[in-house]
Write a protein that binds this DNA or RNA. Structure first.
Length: 567
RNA sequence: UGGGCCGUCGCCAAGCGGUAAGGCACCGGAUUUUGAUUCCGGCAUUCCUAGGUUCAAAUCCUAGCGGCCCAGCCA
């Protein structure tokens, strides 16, 4: 499934864009950009933005989408994140072509434009400390006070700004500020900081600079320099739009265009967190194994979990683009994966919690090779051979001595079909004399039932199995949500998000018998373990002959639902 | 409390003055060698509330109510 062959989504942003094209604004061109800061890895919320920006570029002829690293704060950024982010965007199926940029590419131009602002009397060097600046800013309800440095002459500002660049002053001694309105009801317009002094080497520009421009100053100009037509961002930047427009208006004689910023709501997912700060805490506090922990909503995590790029793209299409809170249930994401994998994942058998079954009318050493389709509906997925032996493993909960109402699996004296093989009847049960735990089940094979319905009776139950003699041992990891509450960051109930961590979010099963065909499974290739769910080989922890499988998502289980209902 | 934004089914979301799409979830039922898939059927007389305008309002007006964001030299 490629992003090209699906029905095009419509949303308010695309509506605006189509109107702009119809009016021949920007010569009918559309240029978008995805502007991550390389200070962490991407998560599924970013995927929404990526799908939007790159999706628009794919949709309208002659359009493009830039990948631009918003690298204005070297203290928090790392090169490693740059490569990780590129990999994530590529993995999602998008291509920026030649349009890879860094905000730091524009540092010199940005500096020159700052001098233009100073010359116009629209920016000044302020010598207030950070604390002082905060108290001068006022509050949400009270206007701010003007800085005592606000009326420095253009010459003095120019001299000092150049000295800032030259490294004359210590870190934090001065800032360059826009001269707008200290009594604006919009706090972002109360003389926002444009430049700060930071003696920190930058991952791209090394130690060329000791002053760095802020986001607000950099972003709008970068957009304009690249000819971005529609600058799409999340709702929290709505209050910054007046500043975005102010800077571009003041600099309109120096810049090629004035992009339009449009905001949409960010994605939130139930039972997880999307905040970079919180994700960082989870990783550095070792609550998870790393940025790619399969329980995390990071792109790296969901990839390792076994999500496919197509399922993520599909998800992003379903959630839509609006300005209303986009707080989506995990079930929708899971369903997108199931939908993809139902069609595309080959099937195999694995037993999570094995109990031994002895087929007493098969001789010792019996081995029957059975060729089975890898997919019930899709012959294109080929076939494989499984082997039936005298002893096999089945799932412990596929057998009940005292079955609940509606149970259609194996019971004493009852019959069930072994998937892809014969119908068996339970003859007796062997138990540990001390614990009374079932150690083995003795069954009789009805040899007349391979690929055939039995004579004169109906056998409804079908269970999966793996040969006890011929199998591979795998480690299987089952996941549940990382948090126990739908909104872990909701502080109204008190406590920290750490209090809501699910202690059972990871369950490791160490010795699971799985089909031999799974011994050499390729990473990145999904598989359905029949009746259990979809799984993916863990590329990090698997070893030859000792595969580790992550459960990406379980199958729908109406029996489990029915059981919990009757309880 | 100042400013910005949002409120259509449990969750997303169409709708833009002509009488409430769709998906997920949920509830039935059929088919099934995966209790999966597939299929078929059900699921908002009502759009945050209250007034008003109109032949006609989720859509327009007014007043409320509720939620989110902003006081980094972060992005």
């Amino acid at each position: 499934m490629s992003p090209h062959d699906e029905k095009k989504p419509t949303d308010f942003i695309r509506t605006i864009i189509e109107q702009d094209i119809a009016r021949n604004l920007n010569n009918g061109q559309v240029v978008t950009r995805f502007p991550p800061e390389p200070n962490g890895t991407l998560h599924i919320g970013h995927a929404k933005s990526i799908c939007l920006n790159f999706g628009i570029a794919e949709q309208y002829p002659g359009s493009r989408c830039h990948l631009r690293f918003d690298d204005t704060n070297p203290e928090k950024e790392e090169v490693a994140y740059i490569e990780a982010i590129k990999e994530d965007v590529r993995w999602l199926g998008f291509d920026w072509g030649d349009h890879l940029y860094f905000a730091s590419d524009y540092f010199e131009r940005l500096y020159q434009l700052a001098e233009v602002l100073i010359e116009k009397g629209k920016a000044y060097v302020c010598s207030l400390s950070a604390d002082q600046m905060r108290s001068y800013r006022g509050t949400l309800t009270e206007p701010g006070k003007e800085s005592p440095y606000r009326h420095r002459t253009v010459e003095e500002n120019l001299t000092m700004f150049r000295a800032m660049r030259a490294g004359t002053y210590p870190d934090g001694a001065h800032t360059l500020r826009a001269k707008i309105d200290m009594s604006s009801p919009n706090i972002n317009m109360r003389d926002p900081t444009l430049y700060r002094i930071r003696r920190v080497p930058h991952h791209q520009t090394k130690d060329l600079w000791c002053i760095y421009p802020t986001y607000d100053y950099t972003h709008c100009i970068s957009d304009a320099l690249e000819g971005i037509t529609h600058s799409l961002c999340t709702l929290e930047f709505e209050d910054h739009r007046p500043l975005y427009d102010w800077i571009l208006d003041e600099l309109k004689d120096e810049l090629p265009c004035h992009p339009r910023q449009i905001e949409f709501s960010r994605l939130e997912l139930d039972f997880t967190v999307m905040s970079k700060r919180v994700l960082t805490t989870l990783v550095t506090g070792h609550h998870v194994s790393g940025w790619d922990d399969p329980r995390l909503p990071t792109i790296a995590g969901i990839r390792r979990r076994g999500y496919t790029p197509a399922s993520i793209r599909h998800f992003c299409r379903l959630i839509g683009i609006t300005k209303a809170p986009n707080h989506v249930e995990m079930a929708l994401l899971e369903n997108c994966l199931r939908e993809d994998l139902e069609i595309n994942a080959p099937r195999a058998m694995a037993v999570l919690d094995p109990v031994r079954v002895i087929l007493d009318n098969l001789p010792e050493g019996y081995q029957e090779e059975i060729t089975v389709a890898n997919h019930p509906q899709n012959p294109g997925l080929g076939s494989r051979t499984i082997v039936l032996t005298r002893e096999i493993f089945i799932e412990r909960d596929d057998f009940e001595e005292t079955p609940p109402k509606g149970f259609k699996r194996l019971i004493p004296g009852g019959e069930v079909r072994l998937r892809h093989a014969y119908i068996i009847r339970c003859e007796s049960v062997l138990k540990d004399p001390k614990t009374q735990a079932v150690t083995a089940i003795v069954c009789h094979v009805d040899k007349d039932t391979m690929n055939r319905a039995p004579e004169g009776r109906k056998v409804k139950g079908v269970i999966h199995w793996v040969s006890a003699q011929r199998h591979c041992q795998a480690e299987i990891r089952l996941y549940e949500s990382l948090f126990l509450v739908p909104h872990p960051l909701d502080h109204k109930a008190g406590g920290s998000f750490l209090d809501h961590i699910n202690p059972d979010s990871l369950k490791i099963l160490n010795h699971c018998p799985v089909e031999e065909s799974l011994a050499q499974w390729q990473p990145g290739r999904p598989v359905q373990f029949e009746r259990l769910g979809y799984f993916a080989l863990d590329h990090r922890d698997s070893n030859p002959g000792r595969p580790v499988f992550n459960r990406s998502v379980s199958l729908r289980d109406s029996w489990a639902k029915e059981k919990t209902k009757s309880q």
